[in-house]
Each structure stands twice: as C-alpha cells, then as structure tokens.
Amino acid sequence: MTAGLDVGTPQAQSITRDEDVVRVRQLVRTVAVAIKLSLVDQTKLVTAASELARNTLVYGGGGDVLVSVVDNGRRRGVRIVFADQGPGIADLDLALTDGYTTGGGLGLGLSGARRLVDEFDIVTAAGEGTRITVTKWSR
C-alpha cells in the first residue's frame, strides 16, 4: 500500500506544544512546494497534516512527525508519518466515522484527513500508541 522509495533526507518535527502544529504545517508546505504539488493538492495535504498533528497533540499526548519525499518511479510525492505513544484508538472504525469525536471537536480530523490524501495507513491498538502514514502524489 505504501510502495516507493524515500528520496532525500526525511525531516523530523516533534509535537509537544500548540505552536508545533504550526511548524508541522510550514514544514509540510515547504516540502509540498519543493516537489511542485498543485496549489489545491498542497492545500489539501497541509490541511490533512494540520488535522493529524493536532490529533497527535490532543489525543496522543504529543509525538513525532516525519516528512519525506517519495518516488514510485512515475511520480513524486510527500509522505508524512505521525507517531505517538498515547492511549491508541480502541475502535478504529468508529474513529474513522464522520462526526464521531471524543475530544469535543467536529469529528472530522481523522475521516476528513483520509479524504484529503491519496494513501492513508493507520496502525493502532488500545494502550500502544498510534502511527498514521499518509502520502500525497503529484499529478
């Protein structure tokens, strides 16, 4: 599902505070611009990153983000990994449902972010943290 080799050095950003979410957005935008994603695709990816970074902070109690450029031979893309050591997600299907929230938000973070990217992969279990990998390919 997540084929393609890493190109260049991945860039890391830890998320421990509110302002780190802004830093993640800026980092993702810089990389998206560098590989010439279209304006709409940049906007979609940065928005998805913002949702997921906030989730990492609010639900995961903080964590790390890794942004890298990937190449599958035909196209280039941006891959972002969000990892936390938080409580994990017990019922994944429920968490991916539009409008479901435990944090008082709109419940669009996870499900919405999934619609904004090309590939979305999530590994989680109760008590074992959460690791979400998303990829957006250039057209």
Partner: peptide, 14 residues
C-alpha cells in the same frame, strides 16, 4: 476565502 481552501473544506466535509 481562496478557491483551494474552499475545495479542501468541501473535501474535508466542513
């Protein structure tokens, strides 16, 4: 609101 933002919001479901 920019067009790209509006398109993204629609996709996001907001």
């Amino acid at each position: 609101m920019r067009p790209a933002v509006a398109i993204t919001l629609v996709e996001l479901g907001l």
